[in-house]
Design a protein around this nucleic acid. Sequence first.
DNA 1: ACTATATATGGAATCGATTCCCTATTTTAT
DNA 2: ATAAAATAGGGAATCGATTCCATATATAGT
Lengths: 332, 332
Amino acid sequence: MRTIKDIAKLADVSRTTVSRVLNDSGYVSEKSRKKVLDVIEETGYVPSQHAKSLRTKETKIIGVILPKISTDTSSRTVDGMNEVFGEKGYQILLTSTNLDKVKEIEHLRLLQNRQVDGIVLLATNTDEDLIREIQDSKVPVVVIGQEVPHDSGIPSVVFDDYGAAVKLMEALIGSGRRKIGYVGVEAADQAVGVLRKRAYLDVMERHGLESGAPSVQTGDFSIESGYEAASRMFSDGTGDIDAIFAATDRMGIGVWKYLREAGISVPGQVAVVGIGSSETSRFIEPAMTTVEYEFEAAGRAGAEILLSILNGFDNGPDKKILDFKLISRDSL
Amino acid sequence: MRTIKDIAKLADVSRTTVSRVLNDSGYVSEKSRKKVLDVIEETGYVPSQHAKSLRTKETKIIGVILPKISTDTSSRTVDGMNEVFGEKGYQILLTSTNLDKVKEIEHLRLLQNRQVDGIVLLATNTDEDLIREIQDSKVPVVVIGQEVPHDSGIPSVVFDDYGAAVKLMEALIGSGRRKIGYVGVEAADQAVGVLRKRAYLDVMERHGLESGAPSVQTGDFSIESGYEAASRMFSDGTGDIDAIFAATDRMGIGVWKYLREAGISVPGQVAVVGIGSSETSRFIEPAMTTVEYEFEAAGRAGAEILLSILNGFDNGPDKKILDFKLISRDSL
DNA sequence: ACTATATATGGAATCGATTCCCTATTTTAT
DNA sequence: ATAAAATAGGGAATCGATTCCATATATAGT
């Protein structure tokens, strides 16, 4: 492995001069610059990032913490981040918690040890411990996907979950549905578990509709859990439902599957809507009405916020709320 | 930021001793060890990875080059890799070429500059330039997804694309289909573009069946391109086709969509099969017959090969061929 | 012609760890 | 009791860059 010292010797200049050429800093004559550049070209020399980082305290690496890599949400968000980070010469160090809440904090620490320049966290919860850990972080952290307490000082990017859910509910009610069931997820997840459900309950109440126990079910994001949630709705209270609002597309697909198998016509007897605009939701029949979130945009926004912090433009804790788009299809 | 020097001073020992405690090396008395550990606990000290890597030449980081992050194939493979790398304390530095072939080489270089310990490349081609660049690499590289020349000395993990395609074709023919069309991708992609097509052509020939021009089409992996390929098949030669083998599920879904819209019954008039076992393929109607590749396993296998090389067990260039599973559903 | 100032370059300290080598003290073996 | 081996711990070199400071020369300003 060649070092700057070797290059200096070969080019017959000092290490200082080589470093100057490398970084376009200070004064270097054309002659010296050429000599150095030639030697670099010949030798295929590449400076050591570690030595560099050791001095400059910059790594050009951003740590990203995901709940799981292979989900539509995660990978599209990372794609978006990568776009803007890549442009600025940053690379992404990926870690996955595999849905283990404890690991979120663990990885937060691990990444700081790696001395990344910043961290993006695709959060699944907003527990106090987590918030505290973020606040204690030595490097800037941006949270994507979860509402953080407004006084926490933590920048974040979220989708308008409440608004999206309201819009979907209004659409359901606008089409004459009254006995609407809900399939959600546990409350630890603010964005998906709490906000969307609250929208459902609020709209139901506003219209004086009842949202009793059997018509409100909880799943775990999987298609299967949607299927089972639907089956519970119909085995219990039974039949007295004319629409189901699933908090995510995947659970919605589970619901749809159950309905199909149970011989319940969609949307004739029961309408189904979801959130997420997954590929599958487009191709089932009837195609599912859903809400489109542009995850790539969320990734980009998160990256941009982090970058602006890194560049010292720390104009207060940004909170960016991303818009959504209602995709009306045939399941409603 | 605290350094080992601060800790040494606070614990009233030398940096050497602190380092020994940190790395469990050399002789350290229980007393000293406790003092050091206590100070570390109190201060929340974390050693600098850069300083460490500078000396040890180890980063515990693996570079991963993907064609695109947000695809099922990529993200599942990364998930698998992450599983085994994570266990061994390695982290993943992600880069995406966004399907730009030139960038594959560029990123290969970039990652070496980052002095990653190893590189995993999800390849989309096997051009000479790329192979040469890999061979010149200072750090070990494992290729996933593409057959590399057997004499290149490059370890790789591939799926049995030819075998899978043959099996699918035999199933088609076994069900009585004779006029089988093919929707593939360009030949730069060995695995998908060449191998699967060759299997198609071989099987057709073996059975004395004709595979003329209009019934062999090329797409670009997208659903839309599958749709268009199908439409070309039927506008040209027209009608004289009783099955379509799509090289990927997504293109297969495009084909299915076209058939549906054109009022051609599936599988009554035309059967459709794909490769990949995507989620959507399961839920369309009729559900699509396809081949399941376990991408997570490919990721794991790639990671294991790389790890064994890093540990000095360099038992020749491994080439691992992964099995597949035929998923028979209703589209055939 | 004589200061200023701009240009060019190198020496040496520095970043924060690891590790070789040396010395001192204990423990064990004979 | 004495030599050998094990245990404990520190000094200082080292990894490969950046950067402060000093010095030397060229150019410009008056």
